[in-house]
Design a protein around this nucleic acid. Structure first.
Length: 577
RNA sequence: GCGCCCAUAGCUCAACUGGAUAGAGCACUUGACUUCGGAUCAAGGGGUUGUGGGUUCGAGUCCUGCUGGGCGCGCCA
């Protein structure tokens, strides 16, 4: 990576200036930021360190910048002090050497080492197994998958997991819904349950069970039949979800059952541990987790919303139910709350399996759970920073210019499979990635086909295919007469392209640190654009032997870069289109 | 009522986490190949970054008031 080299040069220059008595000693030296200036005439990298030091040094920023710039000795970096900034320009020789470096790295180009081989997990998808995977889950899955790719490219050993919420009353309601559809498929007039799941997917599952299993569940006691059918239904839903994930190009290492946390006894074990710490309290017949053991503030069902902050706006300790009372939940298996399972699950991830970080990808409807999860992490004394939650904003679905409120129970949710039928995996993934997770975006199904043809993903893939074709042609027609010439680049389009290529590891680092994958599409488009410009302005065929070689090498380095960023996004890098 | 998030070009979004003249795509206007893939390239119009204050050398970015929107605050899942 280039950035650390610049950083090192700045540090050395400051030290050198201090030895020369031209700068005072700064105790402590503030963090030095090396950034890419927006304006190309400001160079390849820049730092504002002089502006930051001006106050403590009691010198003008201009003077400090000039002093530091004077002490930059690296031959690769040309330093210039302007307006208190220090701008750096990479020498053409250095840029040429970097092209060779990229080619040497090959498929590993762009990878960095933040993890040192540590185990990391990304848990994503994890939609309730009460229906097929929907559009909202699509955003979750693609974001999670790309974060996993990024950690894998950052020196982590990455584990991908889907959490199957196969416990609780929702499964009973789902079972009742499937049972009704099953009975209807067999010609009976069975009504759907209150708050049932009305989607076509649930109806399909009812039909499948009717076909495979016949009438045998009609002869069982109702509760028993529903339990059995719920189990079969969940399995069928998960089968379909797995097929959808395969279409999306996502490979999970594990599907983790919520129920297993209680079957293994880990759930109760964790509650006992927290109880010993005095953090589990009984209240109105239910068991509560109280972050600091303070009395339960409220549980009155007719009360206003329970405040989460006090009058001064300070966050109140987290309190939440872990075990429902027998009055509310007569069935023992429906007593543990989601939150109770989350406690055991977090422990299982971080302590039993050693994932650090364990990253959760959650929709914005789970934002209230984030503070709770962090409180649990503290209570269980999980290592600081081992739990990280990414919250993404919902997708607004438009049908014919009208907003549609999607709901699994209502049965009007748009399925991933249906969208994939329309536009394919690459376009779908690109759409899901191109926006910051903090932005809610609208998905207009009427404009889908029309907009799909203009999807920037094709522009990026086209560049890749074009380079492949270019290389093949160069070989076939014997363009390269001299493969030993030293690389030399002078054309602005060449230099601009090389500079952009060199940013790849920085982009990987940025995504790894911010957990925001939308930087890849932006970057990939920039690379493709600069390549097109280079391609237009710098002819290869017919140039001098050393130029042909240098430009083909640059094209190859571009292909490696595009292939890598496409791979990070989980997109195909076609050789022909 | 309280909390989290969002508001940037006609539309969809960026802006490397406080830097220098806020950038792309789409749409619109105009131009460019008898040579490497036209799914391309070049040029142009389009902005008081919702709004009022504040912090500082410097704010789309941080704090704060307001406006509009999304989500949440349950012994739902």
């Amino acid at each position: 990576m280039v950035r650390p080299l610049v950083l090192q040069a700045v540090k050395e220059a400051i030290t050198s200036a201090q030895h020369a008595g031209e700068l005072p000693s700064f105790m402590p030296l503030p963090e030095i930021h090396i950034e890419h200036p927006r304006q190309p005439e400001h160079g390849d990298y820049a730092t504002n360190i002089a502006l930051q030091l001006a106050r403590t040094a009691r010198m003008s920023p201009q003077h400090i910048a000039a002093t530091i710039a004077r002490h930059i000795t690296s031959a690769d970096l040309q330093a210039e002090a302007v307006n208190g900034f220090i701008n750096f320009r990479l020498s053409p020789a250095f840029l040429a050497a970097q092209v060779e470096h990229i080619l040497q790295q090959g498929e590993r180009w762009g990878e960095i080492n933040l993890g040192n081989g540590r185990k990391a997990q990304v848990e994503f998808g994890s939609a309730n197994p009460t229906g097929y995977a929907t559009l909202g889950t699509g955003r979750n899955v693609v974001v999670g998958d790309v974060l996993a790719n990024t950690l894998a490219a950052s020196g982590y050993q990455v584990h991908r997991e889907w959490y199957v919420n196969d416990a609780g009353s929702q499964i009973r309601v789902f079972g009742e819904s499937v049972f009704a559809r099953y009975a209807q498929a067999l010609g009976l007039d069975e009504p759907m349950p209150e708050r049932g799941y009305h989607g076509d997917d649930v109806a399909e599952i009812g039909r499948i069970i009717a076909e495979r299993e016949g009438e045998r569940f009609l002869h069982l006691p109702r509760a028993e039949a529903i339990r059995a059918i719920a189990e079969i239904g969940v399995a069928l839903v998960m089968d379909q979800i797995k097929r959808t994930m395969q279409r999306l190009g996502v490979h999970y290492d594990n599907y983790f059952s919520e129920k297993s946390l209680w079957a293994s006894g880990l759930g109760d074990q964790m509650l006992a541990r927290l109880q010993q710490k005095g953090l589990i309290l009984q209240h109105d017949g239910a068991l509560w987790f109280s972050e600091d053991g303070s009395p339960i503030r409220s549980s009155q069902s007719d009360a206003e919303e329970t405040p989460t902050t006090d009058e001064a706006g300070k966050r109140l300790p987290v309190q939440a139910v872990v075990m429902r009372s027998s009055q509310v939940a007569p069935l023992p298996e429906e007593r543990p709350t989601y939150f109770a399972s989350d406690i055991a699950y977090a422990y299982h991830k971080v302590i039993l399996r050693g994932f650090n970080p364990a990253i959760y990808v959650w929709g914005e409807d789970h934002q209230a759970s984030v503070e709770r999860l962090y409180a649990v992490a503290r209570a269980l004394e999980l290592p600081e920073g081992s739990i990280k939650v990414v919250i993404y904003r919902f997708i607004t679905l438009m049908r014919g210019g009208v907003e549609v409120r999607m709901g699994k129970r209502k049965g009007n949710a748009l399925l991933i499979d249906d969208v994939l039928d329309e536009i394919g995996t690459d376009a779908f993934r690109y759409i899901m990635l191109a926006r910051s997770v903090d932005t809610k975006f609208t998905f207009d199904i009427a404009l889908l086909q029309e907009q799909n043809e203009k999807n920037p993903v094709y522009y990026i893939q086209y560049s890749h295919a074009r380079i492949c074709s270019l290389e093949a042609r160069a070989v076939a027609e014997g363009w390269e007469q001299d493969r030993t010439a030293s690389l030399h680049y002078t054309h602005p389009a060449e230099l601009a392209l090389i500079r952009k290529l060199l940013e790849l590891p920085e982009v990987v680092e940025l995504v790894a640190n911010t957990l925001q994958p939308h930087h890849y599409p932006t970057y990939a488009r920039d690379v493709a654009y600069l390549f097109s410009k280079f391609y237009e302005e710098c002819r290869i065929k017919g140039a001098s032997p050393s130029t042909v070689f240098a430009r083909l090498q640059l094209a190859r380095a571009t292909r490696l870069t595009l292939a890598k960023v496409l791979k990070l996004m989980g997109l195909s890098a076609p050789e022909k289109m």
